[in-house]
């Protein structure tokens, strides 16, 4: 076969130009999703997200108050929050940098920010879904609508999903800063810095994902403040990751 580009080259394969940021984001999101679906990380994340169900089942078996069980389920889900996004998003970005497959992306006609945003668009919803599947299962085990009102359950699920997205953004930022130890650093940050800060009765707690999640779920003082916290953390982390990757060589 032959074409204008030479033997074996595609005829007219060249597009009109580089990929727009949006198109690149979409393509990278799809690529990240396919890779995650074929790896083990997705299943490990889902299994971890379901761990609280075991504790909830035990507490239900011991006939604890169902409202308390629901609160406990939410708190336990917050404990899995540092791990689920870390094992989904961390390797996706960090391995790219460590294994040097980033060379394939760097040399393409796409804006660099789309690499971070594309992976987040592809994988942050997966992390959020894993977390909410865990909490929704706990809710059902705890007694479903008979134990906790559907509206409250939705609120909790929404809060956890939003917290999952924020945690994913933090993991992305950490992965661009310390790709070699991305997962461990992200887990340590979220578990031993973010979570304790969120529990402190000081103004600093407003920068914590845990605080934001509790507030949105109705376990904190002000849902709006909680939502703003989650949005601010997400935006800050994405901005940091994008800035870092734009300068990376």
């Amino acid at each position: 076969m032959s074409g204008p580009g030479g033997p074996g080259l595609p005829v007219g394969a060249r597009g009109p130009g580089g990929l727009s940021g949006l198109a690149a984001t979409r393509a990278l999101a799809a690529l990240a999703l396919v890779r995650a679906a074929r790896g083990k990380a997705l299943w490990i994340a889902l299994a971890l997200a379901l761990l609280p169900v075991i504790v909830v089942s035990v507490r239900v078996g011991l006939d604890h108050d169902r409202a308390d069980v629901w609160r406990a389920a939410f708190e336990l889900s917050l404990l899995t929050l540092p791990i689920v996004p870390a094992i989904l998003i961390g390797p996706s970005l960090a391995d790219e940098l460590e294994d040097r497959t980033s060379a394939y992306l760097w040399s393409r006609a796409l804006p660099r920010w789309s690499i971070v945003v594309g992976k987040l668009v592809g994988l942050a919803p997966v992390a959020a879904v894993c977390l909410t599947v865990g909490l929704a299962t706990s809710w059902l085990v705890a007694g479903g609508p008979g134990a906790v009102a559907v509206a409250d359950a939705w609120r909790g699920l929404g809060a956890l999903a939003a917290a999952g997205v924020a945690a994913s953004a933090v993991v992305a930022a950490i992965a661009t800063l310390v790709p070699r130890h991305a997962v461990a650093t992200a887990v340590v940050w979220l578990l031993f810095v973010d979570a304790p800060v969120g529990a402190l009765p000081i103004a600093l707690q407003h920068g914590s994902i845990g605080f934001g999640a509790r507030a949105v779920a109705g376990f904190g003082p002000d849902a709006v403040t909680g939502a703003l916290t989650l949005v601010a953390v997400t935006a800050l982390a994405v901005a940091l990751a994008v800035r870092r990757i734009a300068r990376m060589e």
């Binding site: 076969m1 033997p7 074996g8 080259l9 595609p10 005829v11 007219g12 394969a13 060249r14 597009g15 009109p16 130009g17 580089g18 990929l19 198109a23 690149a24 393509a27 990278l28 799809a30 690529l31 394939y104 992306l105 393409r108 006609a109 796409l110």
Partner: peptide
Amino acid sequence: ALAHLAGVPRAQAPAAAVRALEA
């Protein structure tokens, strides 16, 4: 995937990939 990320329109990328692999 890499052809599309390099700017080949999404609809044409699979055919471009096949031709390049054949080449």
